Simulated assay, not measured.
Amino acid sequence: MNKNFVLRGFGRYAPERILTNADLEKIVDTSDEWITTRTGIKQRHIVAEDQAASDLAYEAAKHALSQAGMDASELTHIVCGTFTPDSVIPSCSCRIQEKLGITGQMCVDIQAACSGFLYALQTARGYLMLEPDSKILVVTAEVVSRRVNWEDRTTCVLFGDASGATIMTANDKDEDLPELVDVMLGADGSLGDLLAVDGGGSAHSYKKGDVIGDEYFVRMQGRDIFKHAVRNMVGVSQKLLAKHGIDKKEIDVLIPHQANWRIIDAVGRKFDIAEEKVFCNIDRYGNTSAASVPLALSEAVESGFIKKGDLVLMPAFGGGFTWGAGLIRF
Rank of each mutant, 00 (worst) to 15 (best):
T20D: 04
V6E: 03
T82R: 04
G40V: 14
G304M: 10
V278I: 15
K277E: 00
E299C: 06
D50V: 12
W323I: 03
Y119F: 13
D133Q: 15
I41C: 05
M1H: 15
G309N: 15
H244I: 14
A300C: 08
E275T: 15
L311P: 00
V293G: 07
H45C: 09
V79T: 10
F271L: 04
R223Q: 11
A170T: 15
F271V: 05
V181M: 05
L158H: 01
G201I: 06
W323L: 00
R44G: 00
T36H: 08
D198V: 08
I255T: 07
Q111H: 13
D55A: 07
G104N: 11
A14L: 06
V79R: 02
L313Q: 03
P315L: 07
G9F: 05
H204D: 01
S145T: 11
A113K: 03
V278R: 01
D32S: 11
I282A: 01
R219I: 09
M129G: 09
S134Y: 09
R153D: 02
A162E: 01
G126Y: 13
V293H: 01
K227E: 07
Q221L: 02
R146D: 03
K249S: 15
T30H: 00
K308R: 13
A300E: 04
I225T: 08
F226N: 05
V267K: 02
R8Q: 09
M233Q: 13
L75C: 10
D109W: 08
G189E: 08
G309E: 11
F226A: 05
L56Q: 09
K270C: 11
V197M: 07
E49K: 15
R125P: 00
G126Q: 13
I167S: 05
P85Y: 10
C114I: 07
F317H: 02
T103L: 11
A112R: 10
S190E: 12
A72Q: 11
E74W: 09
D176A: 12
D109M: 07
K243Y: 12
L118K: 04
E98N: 15
A290E: 02
D23N: 06
G209Y: 00
K207S: 14
L56H: 07
S298I: 03
A316Y: 05
K243D: 09
D86S: 09
Q111L: 12
I246A: 04
D272N: 11
D32M: 08
L56E: 02
G319P: 01
R219L: 05
L297N: 03
K207Y: 10
V181D: 03
C80F: 13
R17W: 04
D182N: 13
H204R: 01
R231A: 12
R44P: 08
M70R: 15
I41S: 04
G201T: 15
C280F: 07
A68D: 10
P132T: 15
T169G: 05
N171W: 11
G304I: 13
S87L: 15
R8S: 08
L297I: 12
L180P: 06
